[in-house]
């Protein structure tokens, strides 16, 4: 090998994101570069703190890192557009925006301004909106419910629907849901939730995942590290990233369908929300992010508002014209 990178990620070794995104990327890079580049994945918290992968790269402790813009939303809300936000585009439209609508270039420019070279490595399917002890079918049902969630969705739930967002650390979610300490929780896509066992703790499963219609992970390197790379290797690694993202999304779809079949066979009840309610939830999410962008603009930082306008325009055409697609949905 010419190049060896130890690459930490923000999730534990063996978890779906680790296997499906990072390990798959390592394998694809090895294959496409003929073994000239060796990527050695590390689980969360081993080489650098789980949520400080970007810092670890910036400090030079590791050459590259794998994480999600979600963890940077508090620092700069523009990250929410890349991370996926409540009421935003689903995976089908989003991946098209990323690769064909200028999303990838926008992300890469954004990271370049922070001194990073970014590679999109992993776009996910929609999450499960909730595993719940109580049925939720309309907006009023959410009022006063203790809902384990975080990020933008927590704000939307609280400000627009009167729910009570509750911070529960990862290891305690299962137990607190089972003991009815919280009424409902959201975590990941169906295939990600299955091994967490939430369906064994609570009866109702609420879909679709308006709160997180898709999600994106990236590999970042310091610009110098990337620049120092042999010119022949760069396009190969970029192709490996693209390939990984496509394969990983398809794999999520396939595993999610199997997971939902498992849920449906068991004693759980799957509640699919009415389209009107989904629209109501989505509009609240879009309102939230629009206000964020406007606030930044009024502070003299128009970048987020500009990007959001581009995003919304893409979503609008997609929504208007995608009815020609066959989706095979019941």
């Amino acid at each position: 090998q010419e190049v060896t990178w130890q690459v930490p990620t923000s999730v534990p070794e063996g978890s779906p994101y680790y296997v499906n995104f990072l390990e798959r990327f390592a394998d694809n890079v090895e294959l496409l570069t003929d073994g000239r580049v060796d990527i050695e994945p590390f689980g969360a918290g081993v080489l650098v703190p789980a949520l400080q992968v970007y810092e670890g790269v910036a400090d030079g402790v590791v050459q590259a890192g794998h994480s999600t813009p979600s963890y940077r939303v508090n620092q700069d809300p523009m990250n929410a557009i890349f991370a996926g936000f409540p009421g935003g585009m689903g995976p089908e439209a989003f991946i098209t925006w990323i690769y064909e609508g200028g999303g990838k270039e926008a992300l890469y420019d954004f990271r370049a301004s922070e001194g990073f070279k970014s590679l999109v490595v992993g776009i996910g399917s929609s999450e499960i909106m909730a595993h719940s002890n109580v049925p939720v079918r309309k907006a009023e049902d959410l009022k006063g419910l203790k809902y384990r969630t975080s990020g933008p969705w927590a704000e939307v739930m609280k400000d627009y629907f009167g729910a009570v967002p509750t911070v529960v650390p990862p290891g305690e979610i299962y137990t607190l849901l089972q003991r009815k300490g919280v009424d409902l929780i959201e975590w990941g896509p169906p295939s990600g939730n299955l091994p967490e066992g939430f369906h064994e703790a609570a009866k109702y499963i609420i879909v679709p995942g308006v709160h997180q219609p898709t999600f994106l992970w990236e590999v970042v390197l310091k610009q110098e590290t990337w620049d120092a790379l042999d010119g022949e290797l760069k396009p190969l690694i970029e192709k490996a990233a693209d390939l990984t993202t496509m394969q990983a999304l398809l794999h999520f779809y396939a595993e999610d369908v199997k997971a939902l079949e498992t849920y449906r066979k068991g004693p759980n009840e799957i509640i699919t929300l009415d389209p009107e309610f989904v629209t109501e939830l989505s509009e609240a999410g879009v309102d939230w992010i629009t206000k964020k962008a406007e606030t930044l603009k009024s502070e003299g930082k128009p970048e987020m508002a500009e990007l959001l306008a581009n995003y919304m325009a893409f979503e609008k055409s997609w929504a208007a014209e995608s009815s020609y697609l066959i989706r095979n949905q019941d």
Partner: peptide, 19 residues
């Protein structure tokens, strides 16, 4: 049970926490 270790173990091993 319920032990925090078991919950973490099951989650890492991609198996049922309840089981």
């Amino acid at each position: 049970p319920p032990s925090v270790i078991a919950v973490m173990y099951a989650s890492l091993a991609q198996m049922s926490v309840g089981e």
